[in-house]
Nucleic acid binder design. Structure first.
Length: 147
DNA sequence: GCCAACGTTGGC
DNA sequence: GCCAACGTTGGC
């Protein structure tokens, strides 16, 4: 799961009450489908810092809820407001996430790219811009070994 | 700041 | 259904 640390970093998540926050504002249908259908409470995820000095994986978070409608889509005062999202048929979903731990060090995008065994990882595919994407079990374990 | 690689929108 | 225009993402 990607976030710009200037906007919301893993340290910000750690400071939240119960170290938990709603991952709102995702406005991409592929990512929406994963939030709504694929992710389940108790799953683990990497917290990726994007669009910053050193992009890379900063830590591990736990999915703290199943997907549910993103309330910011219905809030005219939210920058994520979407007038086309009908409360009776919500267009956008989110999950709650909980801080688990930071990695002992940030594993940078550059370093991930050097790992031949990660060459098929979705994060590293050309042109990828999804803010939420799957990580395979082998990829997950390899990254933890790099820590 | 630049730009490639998308996704979305809307005219036709 | 096609596709140009536009907006966004995110690495560099």
């Amino acid at each position: 799961m990607k976030s710009e640390p200037g906007d919301f970093s893993i340290d910000d998540l750690k400071k939240r009450p119960r170290r938990t926050e709603a991952w709102d504002g995702v406005r991409n249908f592929q990512a929406r489908n994963m939030l709504r259908d694929a992710m389940r409470q108790g799953d683990l995820a990497f917290f990726y810092h994007s669009n910053c000095d050193e992009p890379g994986i900063a830590g591990i978070i736990e999915i703290a809820s199943n997907g549910y409608p993103d309330p910011t889509a219905f809030d005219p005062h939210s920058k994520h407001f979407d007038p086309d999202s009908d409360p009776a048929d919500p267009r956008w979903y989110l999950v709650d996430v909980r801080f688990k731990r930071k990695l002992r060090r940030l594993i940078s995008l550059t370093e991930l790219k050097k790992q031949k065994r990660l060459r098929n990882m979705q994060l590293l595919k050309r042109g990828n811009r999804l803010s939420v994407m799957p990580v395979g079990p082998a990829e997950w374990n390899l990254i933890l070994e790099m820590e």
